[in-house]
């Protein structure tokens, strides 16, 4: 099974990189751009067929390593 994990900063945590991207887009002429937040995408392959088990294991991975839950939140997407 393949999975995709999105790690992003929690709302309210300052995101200097996101700010810089927003600023850059504005100066490139994309005037409609407002707030920008950036994050990470992590694609994983799992030797697991049970969706429930896969989800639980991915949540565990996020809590332990993939996200720093002090400042980051995560979303999990199971594919195929």
């Amino acid at each position: 099974m393949r999975a995709r994990v999105f790690v992003t900063l929690k709302p309210g945590v300052l995101d200097p990189q996101g700010k810089a991207i927003g600023h850059a887009l504005n100066s490139l002429g994309f005037k409609s751009v407002g707030d920008v937040r950036q994050g990470k995408v992590i694609d994983l392959e799992l030797a697991e067929t049970d969706r429930e088990k896969a989800s639980a294991s991915l949540r565990d991975m996020c809590e332990k390593l993939l996200a720093n839950t002090v400042i980051e939140k995560y979303d999990i997407e199971l594919r195929s």
Binding site: V13, L14, P16, Q17, N68, V70
Partner: peptide, 17 residues
């Protein structure tokens, strides 16, 4: 130490990037 939970808080990207 912060990642290991031995100290509170976290160290983020420098404000000046």
């Amino acid at each position: 130490l912060t990642e290991a939970g031995l100290l509170p808080g976290t160290l983020m990207r420098n404000a000046g990037l």
